[in-house]
Measured scan of single mutants.
Amino acid sequence: MAAGGDHGSPDSYRSPLASRYASPEMCFVFSDRYKFRTWRQLWLWLAEAEQTLGLPITDEQIQEMKSNLENIDFKMAAEEEKRLRHDVMAHVHTFGHCCPKAAGIIHLGATSCYVGDNTDLIILRNALDLLLPKLARVISRLADFAKERASLPTLGFTHFQPAQLTTVGKRCCLWIQDLCMDLQNLKRVRDDLRFRGVKGTTGTQASFLQLFEGDDHKVEQLDKMVTEKAGFKRAFIITGQTYTRKVDIEVLSVLASLGASVHKICTDIRLLANLKEMEEPFEKQQIGSSAMPYKRNPMRSERCCSLARHLMTLVMDPLQTASVQWFERTLDDSANRRICLAEAFLTADTILNTLQNISEGLVVYPKVIERRIRQELPFMATENIIMAMVKAGGSRQDCHEKIRVLSQQAASVVKQEGGDNDLIERIQVDAYFSPIHSQLDHLLDPSSFTGRASQQVQRFLEEEVYPLLKPYESVMKVKAELCL
């Protein structure tokens, strides 16, 4: 049975990233139509530049190519590739079939990587351009969430054990800070992308030097003109047959890092959902379990974690691919890159769409948070109580021993009897502590235990987050809708 299948058929496997999760716009960027249309555009740009620099290419040939950029006979191309065992030459023939007058000058002087690699770089750039505003929107939604809850005390956790208090907004800023680093890295790697350009079979530009009869300047002009037509500021000066596969490492490393950030955020949300302090959106008709109707599973956060793990592992592909590119190139890269580049971007696209949807509907339960604080705060307040007693004339050592005994009794009630923490009640009825009984409410005010959390939130948002989001103001209103 021949390899390949009808990918629109229910009898043929289709990647869930495309069929179930990723956005239509990201799927289109990695589609065959987008790819092969870009090949034709690159052939047109090459012909236009070659004509401008004096090669015998007519206006009629150029116009014929322009008129057929979208006229792609995919069936013919597939048949040609089956016959020739070469995808680029299959599309040269297919393009030439609908451009008979231009057929002889299509791909003039070029090698397969002229269309293959340059198209990949265009796709990487455009895919990054799709991700950047999506990530900015996630940051914006979380920034709104953090600002609104900047002063809401909550129990902090280290080692997932109760620690000092923080605020809900401050905790959210930990998430935002990681995503801001990801946004900066995505922008950097996007701006650092260079075009492969017009380089020939081993990167020496020998074929173009021959076409222009040894004119170095025209060869350099050709490279520059096509690079500018493709919208790049610069091209690699040095290439082998391909652009260095280190570029793929750079791009997928940034995406993998984004995956790590999203995994951490969504894990926190899942843990908070278990504590009943916070939940992701839950639709009115949504079913959490087929057997347990009360369940409210954090399905979206779980999906993000599941896909983020996949995204983090994909960076190993370009690392290994770059390491086995012998001399000017081997074909070890080809099949692998067809999979890992598309999957990385479709996965990143999915987790950003999902995280935006989550961040637009996060639900906080202040009463649950308050109750958990009441359970733990008495123990945390013991040092403040000791200091207040010393100020009232008591002995630190005597007070410490009193607190120690009462704390152990209260802990026994919590752990052995399943009761509430009654340390404060014990202190309130103990005559030894009568000098500070009137101060206990103040000493137990949760806001006095959150330090500068709310001020940190305000400063972080104003100095770091809002300036970073400013270039994306025009796209901030787009909502994230999930079908599944």
Rank of each mutant, 00 (worst) to 15 (best):
I269Q: 04
R188P: 00
A453D: 05
L152A: 00
P10L: 13
S454V: 09
I72T: 02
E81C: 01
D73P: 14
P153A: 12
P366K: 05
V315E: 07
I358N: 06
R171P: 03
M476K: 14
M299E: 04
R404V: 11
V364L: 13
H86V: 00
S474E: 15
V465W: 04
T202G: 04
A163M: 10
P24I: 15
G54S: 09
Q408L: 11
I265G: 06
Q210M: 13
P467V: 13
D445N: 13
L469S: 14
P298H: 03
D223A: 11
L272D: 14
T94S: 04
Y466D: 13
A90Q: 04
T38A: 02
K391N: 08
E250Y: 08
V254P: 10
G214Q: 14
M387H: 09
P318K: 03
Q164T: 01
P471M: 14
A480F: 15
E148W: 04
H217C: 08
I123R: 08
L255F: 10
S19H: 07
A480D: 14
V457F: 04
T450M: 04
N71G: 08
R83S: 08
Q455L: 08
E383V: 02
A127F: 10
I358D: 15
D441E: 13
W45M: 08
I106V: 13
K75P: 07
I139A: 06
V92D: 04
I238Q: 10
G197R: 02
C304L: 14
G109L: 02
L341Y: 11
L53S: 09
V247L: 14
R20D: 04
T239R: 00
T330K: 01
G231F: 03
F327N: 05
E228Y: 15
A136F: 15
R338H: 00
E370M: 08
L69M: 13
S359T: 00
R171S: 04
A103E: 10
E48H: 01
A163S: 14
P467S: 12
R194T: 05
V429K: 04
T204Q: 13
P366N: 06
L121M: 06
Q221M: 15
E463L: 14
L193M: 15
M476N: 15
N118V: 01
R459Y: 11
Q356P: 05
Q439Y: 02
P133Q: 11
P467L: 13
L132Q: 08
R337H: 10
G116V: 07
T52N: 07
I265W: 14
L135N: 13
G240S: 11
R329C: 03
T242A: 07
K479T: 13
V457K: 02
Q241W: 00
L341W: 14
K170N: 04
Y13H: 10
E80N: 06
L406M: 08
A235Q: 14
S359L: 06
S12R: 15
Y34N: 02
T58R: 09
P10C: 12
I369C: 11
M380I: 08
A22D: 10
T202P: 03
K233Y: 04
V465S: 04
Q241Y: 01
K295I: 02
V92S: 08
A78N: 14
K276S: 06
S23E: 15
V88S: 10
D223G: 07
K295L: 02
K233A: 06
H7G: 09
L484I: 10
A411I: 05
L314E: 08
T382K: 00
T227S: 07
A77H: 14
Q456P: 03
I57T: 04
V247F: 09
C173E: 04
K479L: 15
A256V: 05
C180T: 14
K35S: 03
L331M: 01
G361E: 11
L135W: 00
S407E: 00
E70K: 04
G451W: 05
T202M: 07
L377K: 00
L252N: 11
K134V: 11
R194Q: 10
D441R: 13
P133K: 13
E213C: 10
M1I: 06
T350G: 09
Q177C: 06
E220N: 14
I106R: 01
I57A: 07
E250D: 11
A342M: 15
S207R: 04
L209G: 09
T58W: 05
A480I: 15
V457G: 05
L128T: 13
V198E: 03
R296D: 07
R270V: 00
C340A: 14
Y466S: 08
R338G: 01
A335F: 12
H93F: 08
I106A: 10
M76T: 15
P446V: 06
R85M: 08
H400C: 05
E417N: 10
S19Q: 10
F36C: 09
S207I: 12
T204V: 11
P56V: 10
F145G: 03
E60I: 08
N297C: 00
V315L: 11
G259D: 00
E25Y: 06
E25K: 13
P298L: 04
A322F: 15
L222K: 03
H86Q: 10
G197T: 08
E220K: 08
E280L: 01
R125N: 04
H263L: 04
P471C: 14
D192A: 12
V168H: 09
Y243S: 14
L42H: 00
A453I: 15
R40D: 01
I424V: 13
V413G: 06
Q51L: 06
Q51F: 03
I176C: 12
K264I: 01
F345Q: 03
R137V: 15
F379H: 08
A90D: 00
N185P: 13
A291I: 05
I339A: 04
L124I: 10
L142R: 06
E60T: 04
L179V: 13
V465C: 05
L443I: 14
M89F: 10
I424G: 12
V364W: 09
L131V: 05
E277N: 01
R188I: 13
D398T: 13
V29S: 10
R85A: 02
L211E: 07
L222Q: 01
I237Q: 13
S290C: 03
L255Q: 11
A260M: 13
N68R: 04
F157P: 00
N421W: 01
C98L: 09
T350N: 11
K264S: 07
D144E: 11
M26N: 05
F449G: 04
T58N: 05
H97W: 13
I403E: 05
D11H: 15
K402P: 05
A411P: 04
G8Q: 14
I238F: 01
M387R: 10
N384T: 12
D120T: 09
M380L: 09
Y21A: 05
S438M: 10
S306T: 03
A260F: 08
E228S: 09
G203Q: 01
T347K: 00
I249R: 01
C483S: 13
P24C: 15
S474T: 15
I386N: 12
S301E: 09
L307H: 13
L252C: 09
F28N: 09
A291C: 02
A410W: 03
T119C: 13
A49K: 00
R338P: 01
D422V: 14
Q61A: 08
T154M: 07
D333V: 01
T267W: 00
V478H: 10
V92G: 12
D268E: 12
Q428A: 13
A335D: 01
K147Y: 13
P24R: 13
N384M: 06
S15H: 15
L186R: 03
A102I: 04
E79K: 06
V324Y: 02
S67R: 15
A2F: 14
L121F: 04
E462A: 10
D117P: 00
R33C: 12
R426E: 03
E417Q: 07
S289I: 05
N126S: 15
T38F: 12
D445E: 13
A47G: 04
I123S: 13
E481L: 12
Y114C: 05
E417H: 08
A77V: 12
C483K: 07
E462K: 11
K224E: 11
K35T: 02
T267E: 06
C180G: 09
G361C: 08
K66F: 12
L53F: 05
R85D: 00
E360D: 11
E383H: 02
E376R: 03
L346T: 12
